[in-house]
């Protein structure tokens, strides 16, 4: 069995002349938390829909735990999905709806699974509320609850914290953290700080194309770059550039950015030497951060 929970090979999805996803190939390891990043119209939701089997790829293949998600019954019980814009059916209470879905997923006893799911999203009071009467935030959490029901091995969350207040968003992030390692989680979000914090790896999409995919360390160049926030003093750029392994050093906007060859010098060694050079030159330092922000990388690529 492949180690990849998700395997996308040369997937393309066209809607008439519009190419929403263009020859994307991607693998997500089992137990990983993976981010899908990109501006609006990048193809994130389309890629999600291909993974769920909602859409048929125009070309290429998509596999979830080795199965074609469009094959009848293939992903039943294996996939939990929080779709971005799917409405709840009318004339049914949250409790009845979740119990129905649990029964359909083959979870027994269905009601217990449904109750556990609403407890996980801290929304027990919504049990008897009509699903269509829920506020945006409550509906999002109930949609999250149905995705988590039965602890499926793969969970796809499309914009899980969009429109939630900070407290609830933090709770949702905590739920995602709890799944890491035991379930494969793919999260699509515009909140890059959130993805940087949660995910082991990510794929950056733009206009349907995969711009870059890799571990979070690779994307943020944590092993090859660091920044030093300078309070005051004259930065000895020549001395820093002369350090062994340093490939580039630049100072702008109160920030010193240093790139280095991570294979030649370990990051801790490079950071220490740079700080020593700064302190020797009488420079006052406010802080050090490894790598560049994910946001910068995304802005660079899209």
């Amino acid at each position: 069995m492949s180690d990849a929970a998700i395997d996308i090979a040369q997937a393309t999805k066209q809607f008439g002349p519009t190419v929403a996803v263009n020859q994307v190939s991607l693998q997500v390891s089992r137990g990983a938390c993976y981010g899908l990043i990109g501006p609006n119209g990048a193809g994130k939701t389309t890629l999600f829909s291909l993974l769920c089997g909602y859409l048929r790829p125009t070309r290429g293949t998509v596999r979830i735990l080795g199965q074609d998600p469009r094959s009848p019954g293939a992903i039943k019980g294996k996939l939990g999905v929080l779709p971005q814009d799917a409405a709840f059916p009318a004339s049914i209470t949250v409790g009845a709806l979740l119990t129905y879905w649990a029964r359909l997923s083959g979870l027994a006893p269905a009601e217990r699974h449904a109750r556990e799911a609403v407890e996980r999203v801290a929304l027990v009071e919504a049990w008897n509320v009509e699903a269509r009467a829920l506020s945006h935030g409550m509906a999002k959490r109930i949609a999250m609850a149905q995705a988590l029901m039965g602890n499926p091995p793969v969970v796809l969350l499309d914009e899980p914290t969009a429109g939630l207040d900070p407290r609830i968003a933090a709770h949702v992030r905590q739920l995602i953290r709890e799944m890491k390692g035991t379930q494969t989680v793919v999260v699509s979000s515009h909140n890059l700080h959130e993805l940087e914090e949660l995910c082991d790896g990510a794929a950056i999409l733009d206009r349907g194309r995969l711009m870059q995919a890799g571990s979070m360390a690779e994307l943020t160049a944590r092993a090859e770059e660091f920044r030093v926030e300078i309070a005051r003093g004259e930065v000895p750029l020549d001395a820093i550039r002369a350090l062994q392994g340093c490939t580039q050093a630049a100072f702008a906007g109160g920030q010193l950015a240093v790139s280095f060859d991570g294979r030649q010098v370990p990051p801790e060694e490079m950071i220490t030497r740079t700080l020593e050079a700064l302190i020797r030159a009488g420079v006052k330092v406010l802080g050090v951060s490894r790598g560049r922000k994910l946001e910068e990388r995304v802005l660079q690529l899209t």
């Binding site: 769920c52 019954g73 999905v81 799917a86 359909l104």
Partner: peptide, 18 residues
């Protein structure tokens, strides 16, 4: 009526389309 608001998506991952 389920395809338009996409509520069918909740069913489609749990049951065969048939």
């Amino acid at each position: 009526g389920e395809i338009e608001p996409k509520s069918i998506r909740y069913l489609a991952i749990r049951a065969r389309r048939s």
